[in-house]
């Protein structure tokens, strides 16, 4: 028997919205420690890895490892019926062919029950090694979303170059070119809200090119976290990570574009 509950069901709805445009179906691997999901887009250029810890749930029980094969668009149709402040419970039998989703309003005046048919999904999983990155940038997630959205109107490839002073996003296209630089925040602003700062950890300067359409896809997770962390290495996939307090994190990996 697997069951878990979130006080803020809305968080789960945002999680599904953050993955459903990149991968259509996926296996939620549930074990005693939490829920994980990994999915790749069809061209194997981008990968999303979700890691939810049991500590982030108000209730969590997983007697035996359970794999829930889910079509995210179908699940999203059911989650759409959930109230913004509803509590969400998920239940699945060990060998069941469906999973139940229960939404309960704060005052329990409204309770909704949905049963989602599960799928058998044979999914290729990639081994993502823990990597030491040359440059790690933490910045406001809304700022990153805006840069990706605005620059994609000028070019389809963004060059991200990082020095210890600043991170620069550059694009070029038919109409011309442009770049936006964010300077590292002064560490002195002890008053400033940390989530508004730009922090750069640099081992050595890095410059890499990425397709903006994937980055714009990743920024669908902006609602999950006030900050986003970008990790870059020379000729390495970019890691874009949104941490959700004690619930866990959603990480997106994007293969670089290499100049011929």
């Amino acid at each position: 028997m697997f069951e878990c509950a979130l006080i803020q069901g809305e968080l789960f709805r945002k999680l599904i919205a953050s993955v459903q445009d990149l991968v259509q179906d996926g296996n939620f691997m549930c074990d005693a420690n939490g829920i994980s999901l990994q999915g790749m887009d069809s061209s194997h250029v981008a990968l999303v890895a979700l890691a939810l810890k049991k500590e982030g749930f108000v209730e969590y029980r997983c007697d035996r490892d359970v794999t829930l094969g889910i079509n995210f668009a179908n699940l999203a149709k059911m989650l759409k019926c959930m109230g913004a402040k509803d509590r969400l419970s998920i239940r699945a039998q060990d060998e069941g062919d469906s999973a139940s989703f229960v939404f309960e309003s704060e005052d329990s005046s409204r309770v909704s029950n949905f049963e989602l048919k599960l799928m058998q999904i044979d999914q290729e999983q990639l081994g993502v090694p823990e990597t030491q990155y040359k440059a790690v940038i933490r910045m406001p997630s809304s700022e990153f979303q805006r840069i990706c959205k605005d620059l994609s109107a000028i070019g389809d490839t963004v060059s991200i170059s990082v020095t210890k002073e600043a991170v620069k996003f550059s694009v070029g296209g038919d109409i011309g070119s442009g770049d936006m630089s964010l300077r590292q925040s002064e560490s002195g602003d002890v008053d400033g809200d940390d989530s508004e700062k730009v922090m750069i950890e640099l081992e050595e300067p890095v410059q890499q090119n990425f397709a903006l359409r994937y980055l714009n896809n990743f920024t669908k997770a902006t609602a999950l976290s006030k900050t986003v962390t970008l990790s870059l290495g020379t000729d390495m996939p970019l890691v874009t990570e949104y941490k959700m307090d004690n619930l866990g994190s959603i990480r997106y990996y994007l293969a670089p574009k290499i100049d011929e």
């Binding site: 061209s43 990639l126 090694p129 990996y253 293969a255």
Partner: peptide, 14 residues
């Protein structure tokens, strides 16, 4: 001209 790499060049299938 820059060519789009795939993740399979960096991560191996498990």
């Amino acid at each position: 001209k820059s060519s789009q790499k795939r993740l399979d060049s960096y991560f191996k299938l498990i």
